[in-house]
Design a protein around this nucleic acid. Sequence first.
DNA 1: AATTTGTGAAACCGAAAAGTTGCATATATA
DNA 2: TATATATGCAACTTTTCGGTTTCACAAATT
Lengths: 106, 106
Amino acid sequence: MRRDIFQAIADPTRRAIIALIALQAMTPNAIAENFHTTRQAISKHLRILTECDLVKQEYQGREIYYTLEIEKMKEIDKWLEQYRKIWENRFNQLDQVLSTLKKQKK
Amino acid sequence: MRRDIFQAIADPTRRAIIALIALQAMTPNAIAENFHTTRQAISKHLRILTECDLVKQEYQGREIYYTLEIEKMKEIDKWLEQYRKIWENRFNQLDQVLSTLKKQKK
DNA sequence: AATTTGTGAAACCGAAAAGTTGCATATATA
DNA sequence: TATATATGCAACTTTTCGGTTTCACAAATT
């Protein structure tokens, strides 16, 4: 099935996992301790995150450390860029209105 | 039902709708013309987008114009902020490595 | 060698999502 | 006033999602 980064971050548990491993690489068991679900459920979330390249696995013996692929997060930033342009534009327009008002005051 | 902006943008059709009305306010019928689904399906997407305050309705006679609430998009930007810090930090660290290498060259 | 531990995967389940069809309502238009 | 148009909403269906349970397997530990 086709995995998409926007679909991946839609789930609150997955966003929490991302926040966790952003600080340090963690094993599925260690991650699962932070939630009220089973390890298997977390494992499934990790699979989804892995499938869309948001996290990476690092094998160390029988343990698997999951790390955040911060580069992938930039995709969201890139998507947001078009809208950032809009709100910055509106801000500039407001700025212009304010400075015009200021001039009139003088 | 609880609506969440991350869940709202998870659907590709909804992201396309957002992109459309970011340019100009549009009626459901006009929006639906851009997709291969029924008007009712688009209407449902618009309801979801409205429920999480991503879009706003402007009544004009029997037509309803949907506009993007650009302010709401900032919430995603705000969430992304913590990760932006990380990738900018990494960039700075790389920068430091490079300048150290440069010094050593001298 | 036997047992424990860390992990993924498959089968199953209930809830939610996304879509369609059909209907109701309000506003234009003839 | 009768008709056409724009829209939302409810009922229903199919698909997807998030979770649990059960199992398999490999690596550590005893």
